[in-house]
Design a protein around this nucleic acid. Structure first.
Lengths: 138, 138
DNA sequence: TTATGTGCAAAACATTTGCAGGAGT
DNA sequence: ACTCCTGCAAATGTTTTGCACATAA
């Protein structure tokens, strides 16, 4: 990420970004906190929130406002869509081509100045659907 | 909405649904609470949450898990997409044809059992963009 | 050196829940 | 009557914030 003149390259910031880049699981702030804490045991949860927010603002990472109670974070900033398991809450990427054209369509029919769009599929992941079968059998 | 045998037709339930049907603004639970309270001043916020949740489960209304900190509710249950103003948080319907086919595509390429999808556009509403112009002028 | 960042703890918000009394069927 | 539901208040979970100290530049 590029650090603006007044934005300092701190250890906390580097490690948060490094840890987020290691995973593809779209962790919540708390999950990032747990990951980072293994390397920086004294880091505060507030610092994690502040930095994730800051990086999302500068565009270094993505803040995912998907369903569920917690926001999630993604180091992959190229546009892509997501799928969320309604049973366990897990969020995965889904490899469907991004529709660049629908933003133009939206701009034509709406009063809004369009900035973009996001698609969230919902479903049941394979882990959850197999554990459901077990429950039915038992 | 249809009430199941064990689900009672209470005054609170009726009025919450009536009030939600009066608006197209996708109110938050708190906004519904304020609307309903004008007719039922002693209703509790917990009752509003419980009933909105229940109606969303039975499919009588939609619970919108859009961006922002609060969930929103919609009495229009036919599939449709939304647009959210990143400045004021307002959520409007956007009249773009629902893509029924992409659920099939998603089912083919993913391990998930697909239940559906939702598209959320983000942008700046006309009110917010005109107030921004004023700020620039002043 | 000095503005920016951090750790800690408290506060703020949104939502859920336990329980005693109330109401629909 | 017998459940289910409600109001109230307390609890919970997530995110934000104030402040004194630390640290990058």
């Amino acid at each position: 990420m590029q650090f603006t003149p007044q934005m300092r390259l701190t250890t906390q910031r580097q490690i948060i970004l490094e840890e987020l880049r290691k995973v593809t699981s779209h962790p919540t702030a708390n999950e990032v906190y747990d990951m980072v804490r293994k390397r920086l045991p004294r880091i505060g949860l507030g610092t994690v929130y502040r930095n994730l927010e800051l990086m999302a603002e500068t565009g270094a990472i993505l803040k995912l406002e998907v369903g569920g109670t917690q926001k999630r974070f993604d180091a992959t900033t190229a546009p892509h869509y997501h799928i969320r398991c309604i049973s366990c809450g897990k969020v995965d990427d889904i490899d469907i081509p991004v529709m660049t054209d629908i933003d133009k369509t939206a701009a034509e029919i709406s009063q809004y100045q369009i900035l973009g769009h996001h698609i969230e599929f919902s479903g049941v992941c394979s882990t959850c659907s197999s554990s459901k079968e077990e429950t039915l059998v038992n």
